[in-house]
Amino acid sequence: MAASNWSTFHPSTFILVGIPGLEEAHVWISIPFCSFYILSLLGNSLLVAVIKTERTLHEPMYLFLAMLAFADLVVSTTTAPKALFNFWFGDRAIHINACLAQIFLIHSITTMESGFILAMAFDRYIAICNPLRHSAILTNQIIAKIGLGIVMRGAVLLGPHPFLLKWLPYCRTNIISHTYCEFMVLANLACVDTRIMSIYSLAVAFLTGGLDFVFIALSYILILRTVFSLPSKEARRKSLSTCSSHIFVIVVSYTPAFFSFFTHRFGHVSPYVHILIANMYLLFPPMVNPIIYGVRTPRIRRKALHILGLKPA
């Protein structure tokens, strides 16, 4: 419909509906949301503390894991508190600047998370396919440069998102049918043609998360080829066991991300299903990742229990 047929305005606040169709169940839905968020805060804070204080964990894999844990803390805190205030107290209003900041943080930090997972895959590739040069290739300086590059990629590529949305004219309503501000949701409320913005957002998604996933898959193809060429069955088992935690993290992180992305742009599912999946994409991996590494990495588990006072040093 032509923009001239609509009443346009530049709202100073937006209204977050929450989960349309499930308003009566918001209090009950808040229970898993709150549980996931608390576990995410505790787990990732503990994971960062363990890696920081345990010198034997100052290795590339665990340094990248600490970066991922910190990103998980930020992205879950960006969305969960506002959603919970909405569910508990009906606090639905969000200032446009806070809304745009939320959009930037969600998209940039999730892009950084994908980059850190790729960096961990690269570490596993070097450790298994070229073990003699692992420490020479992944020095502390190189790790810092990789981490900085991942952060800059997310900030630069996703930085235009809030500016693209800032001055759009919106059609009659400032109501967002979601628990948090999301780029495509706001773009769809605009009274102007936003196809170029949508193409840009789609291109960024494929050039970051999409390419990251391709390189991760390629890394593991090369890793598996190397592992299955080892003569000893025990050597193959040990090599694969060093990758198992990371493989679980990849599955947990990318499965809801791809489902949310493709259903939002190409699929036809109930709005509340999409919103629930979109929230699980932001809350479930940050909760599960520390558990995966805590259970499967004895050094992390022992140090975590010691910090919690459940095991002597």
Rank of each mutant, 00 (worst) to 15 (best):
H95I: 00
A101I: 12
K303D: 12
K238P: 05
T255Y: 03
V251M: 13
P160N: 09
P298C: 06
A190D: 03
G18E: 01
Y281P: 00
L310E: 10
K166C: 08
P169V: 02
W167C: 04
K238D: 10
N44F: 03
I31A: 04
S76T: 07
K82G: 10
N188G: 08
F213S: 11
D193P: 02
S114T: 14
L63S: 09
F122K: 01
I29F: 14
F9G: 07
P290W: 00
S12D: 15
T173Y: 10
T8L: 04
A203R: 03
T173C: 02
Y125H: 13
V192R: 03
R92A: 10
G210K: 06
L118R: 03
P162N: 03
L207K: 02
M1Q: 11
V269S: 13
H107T: 09
V75C: 07
L202A: 04
S219R: 02
I51Y: 05
V273S: 05
H264R: 10
K145G: 00
S30I: 06
V249T: 11
A101E: 11
N279M: 15
E234F: 13
Y272M: 01
A80V: 04
V288M: 08
E59V: 13
V273W: 12
P160H: 07
A235M: 01
L148F: 09
I15T: 14
A313W: 11
P11I: 01
I109V: 15
V288N: 06
L46Q: 01
L73H: 04
A101H: 07
S12L: 13
K52H: 00
Q102M: 14
L157F: 15
V269M: 13
S135H: 14
G115N: 00
K303P: 06
W6R: 14
I117F: 08
S253V: 06
M152Y: 07
V50E: 01
H268I: 11
F262H: 09
I307K: 04
L283G: 10
T78K: 00
K303S: 15
F206W: 04
N97E: 08
F70R: 02
R296M: 08
S219V: 05
M120N: 04
S239A: 15
L207N: 06
I38G: 00
I117H: 09
F266S: 03
P298H: 07
T139P: 09
L164S: 07
N188Q: 06
I196R: 06
V269W: 08
F213E: 04
D123N: 12
L305T: 05
D193N: 13
I146V: 14
L282H: 14
G90Y: 14
A203K: 07
S270Q: 15
